[in-house]
Each structure stands twice: as structure tokens, then as C-alpha cells.
Amino acid sequence: MDETGKELVLALYDYQEKSPREVTMKKGDILTLLNSTNKDSWKVEVKITVNGKTYERQGFVPAAYVKKL
């Protein structure tokens, strides 16, 4: 869990989004878990840094590609 009590997951593999509802992640990324009720895909939040500014983006990733921490 992070400092706000949200559950975290670790990306086990790289994943490139295939639709606007998904998010891209790299192996080793730590993501905030938002919903894990679907056995196939979990909703997560990723933090992306562009030019020194951090943005948050929500979307789905394959459940088999992440592990709860």
C-alpha cells in the first residue's frame, strides 16, 4: 500500500496499450490498483513524467501482467 492506503501492483512485463481504455507500463513499474474485480484486466493508475511534470492516467492492464504488493 502507498502512503494514502491504496493498494499497489508491480508490473511483471512490459505492456503497450491497445486501446484508449488501457495504459502502457514497463516491467518494474509500480502502479496504484483501483479495481481488481475482473479476473482478466485490472484498472490501475499510472504516473507519467513529461518534461519534469507528473501526470496521472487511469486505464486497464492484463491482470496476469501485474502482481499485488
Results as ranks from 00 to 15, higher is better:
1 M>A: 13
1 M>W: 13
1 M>F: 13
3 E>R: 13
3 E>W: 13
3 E>M: 14
3 E>I: 13
4 T>A: 12
4 T>Q: 13
4 T>S: 13
6 K>H: 12
7 E>K: 09
7 E>W: 13
8 L>F: 15
10 L>T: 05
10 L>I: 15
11 A>C: 13
11 A>T: 05
11 A>P: 01
12 L>F: 03
12 L>E: 01
13 Y>E: 09
13 Y>S: 07
13 Y>K: 11
13 Y>H: 09
14 D>I: 06
14 D>K: 04
14 D>R: 02
14 D>G: 04
15 Y>D: 00
15 Y>S: 01
15 Y>P: 02
15 Y>R: 01
15 Y>T: 01
15 Y>V: 00
15 Y>G: 01
16 Q>A: 11
16 Q>E: 14
16 Q>M: 12
16 Q>P: 04
17 E>A: 15
17 E>S: 15
18 K>S: 10
19 S>N: 14
19 S>G: 11
19 S>W: 07
19 S>I: 04
20 P>D: 11
20 P>W: 09
20 P>H: 09
21 R>Q: 14
22 E>F: 06
23 V>P: 02
24 T>D: 03
24 T>W: 04
25 M>A: 01
27 K>R: 11
27 K>N: 03
28 G>P: 00
28 G>M: 03
29 D>I: 05
29 D>K: 03
30 I>R: 03
31 L>I: 06
34 L>P: 00
34 L>A: 01
35 N>Y: 06
36 S>G: 10
36 S>I: 05
36 S>M: 09
37 T>R: 09
37 T>K: 10
37 T>W: 08
38 N>G: 09
38 N>E: 09
39 K>D: 09
39 K>M: 10
39 K>A: 13
40 D>Y: 15
41 S>Y: 15
43 K>F: 15
43 K>V: 13
43 K>L: 15
44 V>Y: 01
45 E>T: 09
45 E>P: 00
45 E>V: 14
46 V>C: 09
48 I>T: 08
48 I>F: 11
48 I>Q: 07
49 T>S: 10
49 T>M: 12
49 T>Q: 10
50 V>G: 04
51 N>G: 11
51 N>Y: 07
51 N>M: 10
51 N>I: 03
52 G>C: 06
52 G>K: 03
54 T>Y: 08
55 Y>T: 10
56 E>S: 15
56 E>F: 15
56 E>W: 15
57 R>G: 02
57 R>Q: 05
58 Q>G: 03
58 Q>N: 06
58 Q>W: 07
58 Q>H: 07
58 Q>R: 10
59 G>R: 00
59 G>E: 01
59 G>F: 08
60 F>L: 06
60 F>C: 15
61 V>P: 00
61 V>F: 02
62 P>S: 04
62 P>H: 04
64 A>F: 08
64 A>Q: 10
65 Y>S: 10
65 Y>P: 01
66 V>I: 08
66 V>H: 02
67 K>N: 04
68 K>G: 04
68 K>Q: 07
